[in-house]
C-alpha cells in the first residue's frame, strides 16, 4: 500500500522537523543576513503615516533595530533594558503586525525607548528581515551592515557579550 507508507514517511519527516524545532534555542538562530547590509525597506512611521522610515538611513553610527509589538508579552521583559540602552545607543523599532493605536498606547504606558519606529502593520518588513519570533533585535554597524541578530527577549548578558563586545571590537 504505497499511499499509506508515503503518508507514514511524510509524517515521519514532519515529526523530525518539529522535533528539530523544539531543540533550537530560538535566541541563537543565526541569520544569513548577518554580514549583509540591512535589506532596504520603506515603511510608514508609527508616529505618523505621513513620515517615512527608511532603512537605508540607518548608518553613520552603531544602532539596534528591535522588532516589537504591543501584543507581545516577551517584549515587556526586555523593555526595561531597552529603556536603559536608549540612553547610550541609537535604538530603532519595527512595530510588527500591530495597530497604530495599540502600539502608540503601549509606548505611552510603558515608555518609548525608540528614536523612531517603523509601522509594519501586515508584517511585510518582517518578511524582509526574516522575523521568526517577536521580539528580535538586529545590531547594525555604522555602514548599515547587520552584525548580529538576537531572537527573543534581550538580556544584560546577551547585551554585554554579543552586542557591546562587537561594538568595542568594531571601533577603531
Amino acid at each position: 500500500m504505497i499511499r499509506g507508507w508515503l503518508a507514514v514517511a511524510v509524517f515521519a519527516g514532519l515529526v523530525a522537523m518539529l522535533a528539530f524545532g523544539l531543540t533550537r534555542d530560538p535566541s541563537r538562530v543565526s541569520s544569513p543576513l548577518i554580514g549583509l547590509p540591512v535589506p532596504a525597506f520603506q515603511a510608514e512611521r508609527l508616529a505618523s503615516a505621513d513620515e517615512h522610515f527608511d532603512s537605508t538611513a540607518l548608518r553613520g553610527e552603531w544602532s539596534l533595530l528591535n522588532v516589537w509589538a504591543s501584543w507581545c508579552t516577551t517584549c515587556l521583559e526586555e523593555h526595561e533594558l531597552l529603556m536603559r540602552l536608549s540612553q547610550q545607543l541609537a535604538l530603532y523599532g519595527i512595530n510588527h503586525r500591530d495597530t497604530r493605536d495599540e502600539a502608540r498606547n503601549w509606548l505611552q504606558v510603558y515608555g518609548n525607548p525608540y528614536r523612531a519606529s517603523a509601522f509594519d502593520e501586515h508584517g511585510e518588513v518582517g518578511i524582509e528581515l526574516g522575523v521568526y519570533k517577536v521580539p528580535e533585535t538586529f545590531l547594525l554597524d555604522p555602514d548599515g551592515v547587520i552584525r548580529y541578530k538576537h531572537v527573543g527577549a534581550l538580556d544584560e548578558e546577551a547585551y554585554q557579550e554579543q552586542i557591546l563586545a562587537r561594538i568595542r571590537e568594531g571601533r577603531p
Binding site: 544569513p32 543576513l33 501586515h122 508584517g123 528581515l129 521568526y132
Partner: peptide, 9 residues
C-alpha cells in the same frame, strides 16, 4: 535557508 516568516499575503 534564510529564516523568515510568511504573512497574510
Amino acid at each position: 535557508l534564510p529564516s523568515m516568516s510568511v504573512g497574510p499575503p
